[in-house]
Write a protein that binds this DNA or RNA. Structure first.
Lengths: 255, 255
DNA sequence: CCCTGTGAAGTGTTTCACAGCA
DNA sequence: TGCTGTGAAACACTTCACAGGG
């Protein structure tokens, strides 16, 4: 899921729909796999299956990039890999800084797929002085005090925040002040950033909650959200007339 | 972002839009923070700001749950916390199993926010025999051979996959066979699952690529995706007439 | 004849703007 | 009067279905 809109009204001719952009990496991955197997061409149907989408959507997506296929044949794998890479800006190098080297930060630093295409872990930053100098994934951790310099020196424009939630906004502000304009936030916090800065968030607990929502419905088929637990239902203020659709609740608070 | 649609055509009266469901956890988090500060009521405007959305959207979202507010006043914090928790199925306990205890799996096992609301790490599973018995985050890692039994014994219906990509589909199949019906996939792979099973994916490299796309456009303002790098542009097969919208490419492949 | 590229229709989501209740 | 709840308009995204080129 994404946050931080800051994009043009998309009324621009060269505007690629956001939903399409979000799928390009998926196509690219599937294409890369085909490329490694030296498959020369692929049809929209095959590629769509490999990417987990339907072929009409894939063709429509590609149509925003241009007419890169050959009717009656399909798409040239290498050519498409190049075009999508270029469109995504992966033909250039993106130095990334990870701030907050705890369990998660370290895991990301070690994550191979990170460097997969164009991305390079340029710096690891942590607020704990004791960590300074410690190598994680072969890179020495640096102290937050030097954040500004580190960002500038390495030309970092993409920052990854893996700090505790309480520190996230502050770190974010410092990153932005230092010149970062794209942030990937793993902390469970809503970040506020100035116009022009993009923020995307990855939130484990949100994903789990969404799964729980659907899971719950599977269990109680046809008896949707039922407040079936005998737990104490809280309530306050002056709620006189409530009209929950049906799965209403016990009306008055005990405690 | 999510994959694995398997939901009703949403033509059901009690159907809450998927986009709304995805935001409920956000509202819940903001409400929980207010609750901890003992704030009794909140307006759609305030809550929307705290959750990082606009108030019209928030009110529309809440309208799908029922009429839980009070005109002229706002929403009762405790009451809303309860209603949203119930709607998301968080008033019950969800045992979760994490498969693949590498850097990321261990980080997730240690992640506090995991147990935040209703979720409990019930089991850690890994294919490495050497890891069996090792405690991670206070829980002994168990071997994949016992996956079936572990899932059944603990009544796990939500599984988290943090294995290398090559093992993901196989692990997924086994989880599903053992009774898991919701999967959170961190492996960069497209999982195929039977009808009725939900899959959501979290993919670091996809998020970075999306950021890179926008980042690139910021740099070259008004000169969108320009293939400005002198790099070797690959091409194959028999591409005679290409018509990329404009950011076309050098036409013939060197290597 | 096969498979791409794309208008047009269909569906879902967001935003607007205001009626209506506390 | 202030703020919720919601039709209706605007917008975004997906799917259909088929024209048209190789």
């Amino acid at each position: 899921m994404a946050t931080g809109r800051t994009h043009r009204p998309a009324t621009r001719s060269r505007g690629i729909p956001e939903a399409t952009v979000a799928r390009l990496p998926l196509y690219l991955r599937a294409l890369t796999a085909l490329s490694e197997r030296s498959v020369p061409t692929v049809s929209s149907e095959e590629l769509a299956t490999a990417a987990g989408v339907n072929s009409a959507k894939l063709r429509k997506d590609f149509s925003y990039l241009g007419s890169y296929g050959t009717r009656g044949v399909g798409y040239d794998v290498e050519y498409l890999v190049y075009q999508i890479s270029r469109e995504l800006g992966l033909t250039q190098d993106w130095p990334v800084a990870i701030v907050g080297i705890g369990n998660l930060g370290a895991a990301l630093a070690n994550y191979g797929g990170f460097a997969s295409r164009g991305f390079r872990v340029a710096a690891l930053i942590d607020a704990d002085p004791a960590m300074a100098g410690t190598p994680v994934a072969g890179i020495a951790v640096q102290h937050t005090d030097d954040l500004d310099r580190i960002i500038s020196d390495n030309g970092v424009s993409i920052g990854v925040i893996t700090t505790p939630p309480g520190a996230a906004q502050q770190v974010c502000d410092r990153l932005v002040a230092a010149g970062v304009t794209s942030i990937l936030n793993f902390a469970p916090t809503v970040l506020s950033v100035p116009e022009g800065v993009d923020v995307r968030k990855v939130d484990l607990s949100i994903e789990l909650q969404i799964l729980a929502f659907h899971e719950q419905r599977k269990a109680g088929e046809d008896a949707p959200p039922e407040g079936d637990d005998p737990e104490a239902p809280p309530m306050r203020a002056t709620p006189a007339s409530r009209k929950g659709p049906d799965g209403d609740m016990p009306a008055v608070m005990p405690a």
